[in-house]
Simulated assay, not measured.
Amino acid sequence: MSNIITGKNIVKIFGKGNEQAKALNKVNVEIAKGEFVAVMGPSGSGKSTLLFALSGMDEITSGMVKFGDTELSKLGENALADVRRTKMGFVFQQPTMLRNLNLLDNIILPSAQKGKKDTAKLAQKAKELMNKAGIAGLENRDTTEVSGGQLQRAGICRALMNEPEILFADEPTGALNSKSAEEIMELLVDINKEGTAILLVTHDTKVAAMADRVLFTKDGNIASELTLQKFNGRDREARCETVLAGMAAVGI
């Protein structure tokens, strides 16, 4: 299977002179089309920095990141923005929504901003996604009138509006209770089954256990990785035990 993301010898340095800190140290990583990869590691290990580097949201110091056959660093600012907008989706711990807009308008806003688009068609597509995400009927609710889990579902709907090839998720369940977190992960698993690749950063063992593969970061490197594809269906207990063992093996 071909790769949707390829990173080679990625270095990311923050600061200058004596204040320099190397967040990524010659990292190599590949993500296949349609794969679900989780990244785990202690705070400061480089996991979120890696996500931002692989998505082109942050410029790397050296090395290479390719989206398919396209090297992101060779794209101009506008071309890179177009790739992120049309080919990638992003979900963060705290969805950024405009309070003066209802859920439906928040979902369609980024898609409607680029060029002249039929807002009626966008609204219909958004409603279909909301139905799939389990938040049908909340279209006219303000962002303050829904739960954190419902707001995160709306954020995922927004990320899927342009049918991205890959979804980048940075701690998407970090601000949710256990029930809402489980529901969000079920939704992401279903999205992945439909063909969208996912790269997800998390501290949560149960969340990572839902992925096909887990990368463990430590001191700016990928210290280890393990695959969970050998488990049939969603054998969560065995998956969690395997992830915990992987964490212990690299001392995180």
Rank of each mutant, 00 (worst) to 15 (best):
A208W: 01
A209M: 05
M210V: 07
R213W: 01
L215F: 06
K230D: 09
R234M: 12
F216T: 02
G233Q: 13
D212R: 04
L215W: 04
L226T: 09
L215Y: 04
A208T: 01
F231Y: 12
V207G: 01
K218H: 13
L215H: 05
K206P: 02
K230F: 08
D235W: 11
A223R: 04
K206E: 01
S224P: 12
R234A: 10
K218R: 13
L228M: 04
V207A: 02
D212K: 02
L228G: 00
K218S: 15
K218L: 13
L228F: 05
G220D: 03
M210C: 08
D219S: 08
I222G: 10
N232S: 10
V214G: 01
L228N: 08
K218C: 14
D235K: 12
Q229L: 12
R234V: 15
I222L: 09
A208V: 00
D219H: 15
E225I: 03
D235N: 15
D219C: 13
M210K: 13
E225L: 05
D235T: 10
K218V: 12
Q229N: 13
T227W: 06
V214K: 00
S224H: 13
D235Y: 10
T227K: 12
T217H: 13
F231E: 09
V214D: 00
K206N: 05
R234D: 12
D212Q: 04
A209N: 05
G220Y: 13
K230W: 12
A211Q: 04
R213C: 03
R234I: 11
R234Y: 11
T227A: 10
T217K: 07
G220F: 06
D212F: 01
R213V: 07
A211H: 01
D219K: 14
N221F: 11
T227I: 10
N221H: 15
R213T: 03
F216Q: 05
E225R: 07
A209D: 08
I222V: 14
L215N: 04
I222W: 08
K206H: 02
A223I: 08
D235C: 14
L228C: 03
N232C: 09
A211R: 02
K206S: 07
F216A: 04
M210D: 09
E225D: 09
D235F: 08
Q229R: 11
G220S: 11
D212W: 05
F216N: 00
L226Y: 01
G233C: 10
D235M: 14
R213P: 00
D219Y: 15
A208D: 02
E225A: 02
Q229G: 12
V207S: 01
F216W: 04
N221S: 14
T217S: 05
A211E: 01
R234K: 14
M210R: 15
L226C: 04
N221K: 14
D219V: 15
V214H: 02
S224G: 11
D212V: 01
A209G: 08
L228V: 11
T217L: 11
G220T: 11
F231K: 08
A208N: 03
A208H: 00
A211D: 02
D219M: 15
I222C: 10
T227N: 09
K218W: 09
V207D: 00
G220P: 08
L226I: 07
A209Q: 02
G233H: 10
A223H: 08
A211S: 05
A209E: 02
L226P: 02
K206T: 02
F216R: 00
A209C: 11
G233A: 15
G233M: 12
A208E: 00
V214N: 01
N221E: 15
